[in-house]
Nucleic acid binder design. Structure first.
Lengths: 354, 354
DNA sequence: CTGTTAGCGCATTCAC
DNA sequence: GTGAATGCGCTAACAG
């Protein structure tokens, strides 16, 4: 019924081992033999049995990429870039040679699902795992994660962090590429302050997320330095990283502080929702209220007015994570690299009306 | 070094077979025995060896979801929905019981990569495969795809199409959920015609894609019926499904026909680019030129003005595909269902200036 | 450069 | 309800 290595070997008049060798390409095989084997493979339409070879070799060609929200381009861009580096271009035959199977797993931001996916990947003996985006800061979950990652690393799985702060004990992982969320958040708010804003509302992401906290801390540092740190509780509203949250939180901020002249959002998607709320309340952007986001997703430049935001090189970071996971690039010193965030000043921010 | 089933068996003082039985849960085992085994599993921190069990059982728990562009929410929404149905909520222990490993694979729209992923999934003996979005219409590639899908189905892999037209010989697959792209495209253009538009430019997607062709045909049918079919070559420009393409194509359309009063874009992202081009040329939306998109992605309602578009129930379709792939839902009659597309009239379209 | 020999770790017959 | 054997299909030493 199902054709096996032995069938191919028989047809090519060689031993199974030889077939295995040409298929894996990691061994010297005479050109003529290889030719013959390949023809037999095509004739028989043979496809390697992945589980069997993974079992024998004690490693698989699976590489997992964990994302918090697959519908969010923030993750899609990173994951796509990583996959490009990992999957290889293919040889056009659809035959699939030694390429890895780069797959993305959507945790939906749930700690449980994150752990479950890691276990599933561990079960598959994944060659590598890339974790993208902010981590949940609950201590119990962090401990469980660190233990799990250590076990994965122990079993030979390469662990790479992308857009996520390094682990407390970073020894277990290949590398961590951390975004400078704090610095970016700080510069963004400094920009607003320099324009003359004093009453700035902040729509933060979900609680207990590193990304949320770092961006917010950057904002608060800037406010503090400007002597405006007193009101932070009242001028901050938390919510998920989505449009709706931006909309609702902005209405709430407007209620709490009608004199607000600028809204800083945790990311661009949230900023879009914030903008809608501002308009629905009859205010203009940026004349009445300035708006700023974070990430510089592709749509941000097309917002009207174009969104002031902080650019993160998501594609480059994802690609680098992919290379690191493949061992194609040497890890940064100490295994940790900080990715710079660049302020992008556009039309959605302007001096306050006064 | 690595703990195996036998180790667990030894510690629980049972046979390996029994451990296997409680882990797979498909067999009667005494409660007390199960208890003991589970404790041993936890004590030893045992994780099933996926490749080994897949080899022995001749099936794996991997489910592949193929997407054309993972950075595009169009696919992200469908994939996320499907994953939700497949992965299950997890039991909170991170232990991972019988759940499937739902993974998404990004083809980048490349036929080669599509085929390669399918081969890789076949190699893993995937339990199911979901193909999302438009198919490439090159005959050779279609033939290769059909052959590959037939082989997958033959090997027990459940194949489900989501947002993709059914196969020529649909017997091989579990089900196809097709979007009514043609009908949606037609109604969208009819809406524009009813507003009084006569010179309508069309920014189409890439050539040789079913989605592109169906949407365009819907548009052209409407134009034809209105006696405006003569100019279709000149008023249509093809390009990728991205912002940049919308921008460039719109400039081109404006050059070819300065009197154009409406631009229909192949999807919302393209419409965003089109809008930017229109504005950069000094025109207002919708006063001078109307703009319409397709898909109704989350950001479309936040465009300024809000984008007139055609809504596709992406989440619902993805979830249904996921259930179909799991065998949790009975396939539609004939294995084919057409998903309706709903016209969403918003602020970006209005009667032409005259 | 190629063939032979042994498992990899588990699911599944069978017996009991 | 449980244990003992068998083999899934392949890779990795070894020889030659």
């Amino acid at each position: 019924m199902t054709v096996t290595l032995a069938d191919v070997a028989a047809r090519a008049r060689v031993s199974p081992a030889t077939v295995s060798r040409v298929l894996n390409g990691n061994y010297p095989v005479a050109a003529s033999t290889r030719e013959r084997v390949l023809r037999a493979v095509d004739d028989l339409d043979y496809v390697l049995n992945g589980p069997a070879s993974s079992l024998a070799a004690a490693t698989s060609d699976l590489v997992g990429i964990l994302v918090n929200d697959i519908a969010d381009p923030f993750f899609g861009i990173m994951a796509g870039a990583a996959q490009t580096e990992i999957g290889g271009p293919g040889d056009g035959s659809g035959r699939a040679g030694g390429e890895k199977l780069a797959v993305v797993c959507n945790t939906g931001g749930s700690p449980d699902r994150e752990l479950t996916y890691l276990t599933l990947l561990q079960r598959q003996r994944a060659a590598a795992v890339i974790l993208t985006g902010g981590a949940v800061e609950d201590p119990a979950h962090q401990a469980a994660m660190n233990a799990k990652l250590a076990k994965l690393a122990d079993a030979g799985t390469r662990v790479v962090l992308c857009g996520r702060p390094p682990l407390p004990e970073g020894e277990a992982i290949v590398a961590a590429l951390a975004f400078d969320n704090r610095g970016g958040g700080r510069r963004l708010t400094e920009h607003l302050l320099s324009l003359g804003h004093r009453r700035i509302g902040y729509v933060a992401g979900p609680l207990e997320r590193t990304t949320t906290r770092h961006r917010l801390e950057g904002h608060q540092e800037a406010m503090q330095d400007a002597g405006l740190g007193g009101d932070k509780e009242r001028l901050t509203v938390h919510g998920p990283y989505d449009r709706r949250s931006g909309y609702d939180a902005t209405l709430e901020l407007l209620r709490r502080e009608p004199e607000v002249t600028a809204i800083v959002a945790a990311n661009d998607t949230v900023a879009l929702g914030a903008s809608a709320a501002i308009r629905d309340r009859g205010f203009r952007i940026p004349e009445d209220i300035s708006v700023a986001g974070f990430d510089d997703l592709p749509f941000s430049v097309d917002a009207v007015p174009a969104l002031t935001t902080v650019r993160l090189p998501l594609f480059e970071a994802g690609a680098r994570a992919g290379r690191l996971a493949m061992g194609k690039e040497t890890p940064p010193p100490g295994g940790i690299a900080t990715i710079a965030a660049e302020l992008m000043v556009r039309g959605s921010t302007a001096p306050p009306r006064k």
